[in-house]
Simulated scan of single mutants.
Amino acid sequence: MRVTVFGSANADLVFPVETLPGPGHTVLAGPWRALPGGKGANQAVAAARDGAAVRFAGAVGRDTMAETALSALRAAGADLSAVAVTDAPTGAACICVDAAGRNGIAVSLGANALARAAQVPPLAPGEVVLLQMEVPAAENAALIRRARAEGARAILNLAPAVPVEPDALRALHLLVVNEHEAAWLAAHFGCATSAAGLHAALGVTVAVTLGEAGAEAAGEGARWRIPAFPVRAVDTTGAGDAWCGVLAAALSRGAPLEAAMRRAAAAASIACTRPGAAEAMPTAAETEALLRAG
């Protein structure tokens, strides 16, 4: 079954630093690199490298950054027929990565702000639709409702945390948040920050990624807790996107949520051991090898 990803495609400018800069603080960086990124593109690459048939829908500019933004998607074999080319500049991100693999990121949406749900062709029943929050929230809400109406399964990674219409959240097949996004959403709905608390408030299955502590999920009458795979982190930039993309790929193949979360955890751990975002996504064979070893 196909995975359709609706989201952002960026050119990432990556700066290696000893320590992340704070307010009013200038630090010297090592050689910078221009790499493909954007949460949507990263997750699409992760799903494609894990063996899914992937269609990506988003928007880029007519500038030289567009090829950088789309390069990993092309290399992974994603269908780019639903990508719009606009007069706005291609989205870009400035990423500082410190010696411990932690990062600080500033994102300019650019053309991503012009991505529209109408670009996505009709969806097949059971198809997985993966979304994030680096495109307009109203367009995400429209596509989530379409997915429900057409029998597809919408997965929203609420990253970054911005408001989404509650009825769209309640139409999801699965909501994925990290600890910070879970706290933000829980404050909005007045519930506990756990997966179980968010599930009770929204009535949909919720997964919360917990970094080195793994991930938890809660659905109707079920709870899951999946540990992370211990690795030496080099760059955590793409870890969350690896988790979401591989989860979507596994679900598209019919895997139950618990198995899909374990596979996603393995892929995210591998991504942490490599620099960059889209380029850090593991292949299916690499993920399977870690699963066997673990």
Rank of each mutant, 00 (worst) to 15 (best):
A239R: 03
A242Y: 03
W243K: 04
W243N: 08
G245V: 04
L247Q: 08
A249Y: 00
A250L: 06
A250T: 02
L251A: 00
L251D: 03
L251M: 09
R253S: 00
R253L: 04
R253N: 07
R253E: 13
G254M: 01
G254H: 04
G254D: 06
G254C: 06
A255R: 01
A255D: 12
A255C: 14
P256Q: 08
P256Y: 00
L257G: 03
L257T: 00
E258T: 02
E258Q: 09
A259N: 01
R263I: 10
A264Q: 09
A265T: 03
A267K: 06
A268I: 07
A268S: 07
S269D: 02
S269H: 09
S269F: 10
I270H: 03
I270D: 04
A271I: 08
C272K: 08
C272D: 05
T273P: 01
P275F: 10
P275V: 14
G276E: 02
A277C: 14
E279I: 03
E279D: 13
A280N: 08
A280I: 07
M281K: 06
M281G: 09
P282D: 14
A285M: 14
A285N: 14
A285I: 14
E286K: 09
E286W: 04
T287K: 07
E288Y: 10
A289W: 11
L290Q: 10
L290C: 13
R292P: 14
R292Y: 14
